Computed example of a mutant assay.
Amino acid sequence: MGMGITKDELLQASANDYMNEAQLDYFRRVLEKLRIETMSSIEDAKQQLACPPEMNDEADRASYEEESRLALRIVDRERRLLPKIDAAMKRISSGDYGYCLESGEPIGIARLLLRPTAELCAEVKILNERREQNYRH
């Protein structure tokens, strides 16, 4: 890889540099890698589901069913992640990446490093979650 900036350089960048070419390039690579990992995780889980092992007793069957449940959960979670990755890639192209979809505020490097698909800044996310909790009661 070589080229491109490091995580440390990202975290030390000044606010004026926020979402400059080098940073967008960094997150584009992170998202591409995440997409490949997600696809292969889905494939692995599908393989596991497609080839049941030989089951000689109840214990085998029980552990296989447990593993299948886990595999299905992984497929489900990873499938939901794919559109988020694609949406983030689109935002990189359109120049909206790294900014909150609701407030327009910068999401911030630290948060994007933890969750490169983030669409909301932490403040808006917390507010939304609080709102949801209030509706639930």
Rank of each mutant, 00 (worst) to 15 (best):
I126H: 15
L24C: 13
K125C: 08
G108N: 12
N20K: 02
D8P: 01
T38Y: 04
R115A: 11
C121Q: 04
D44Y: 13
H137Y: 02
T6K: 09
S68G: 15
R130V: 02
V124S: 14
L82S: 02
L24G: 04
E32A: 06
E105V: 07
R136W: 00
A122T: 12
R136I: 04
Y18A: 09
Y26P: 00
E105N: 15
D96V: 13
E132V: 05
D60N: 03
E105G: 07
E123G: 06
E129P: 04
M19D: 02
A50H: 10
I36V: 03
I36S: 03
E37M: 09
L24P: 04
G4V: 06
K125Q: 14
C121L: 04
L81Y: 02
R111T: 06
I85D: 10
S93A: 12
L70W: 07
E65V: 00
L70N: 13
I92G: 12
A71N: 07
K33S: 13
D76V: 03
A59F: 13
E102I: 05
Y99I: 10
M89T: 06
D17W: 00
K46I: 02
R80V: 03
T38L: 07
G95R: 03
E54H: 05
L120A: 07
D60C: 01
I42W: 12
N16S: 09
R61L: 15
A87T: 04
Q12Y: 00
R73G: 06
P106W: 09
R73I: 01
A13P: 04
Y64A: 06
E37D: 15
R28P: 00
E67I: 11
M1H: 08
M89W: 08
S94T: 15
A45G: 03
C121A: 14
Q47N: 14
Y26G: 00
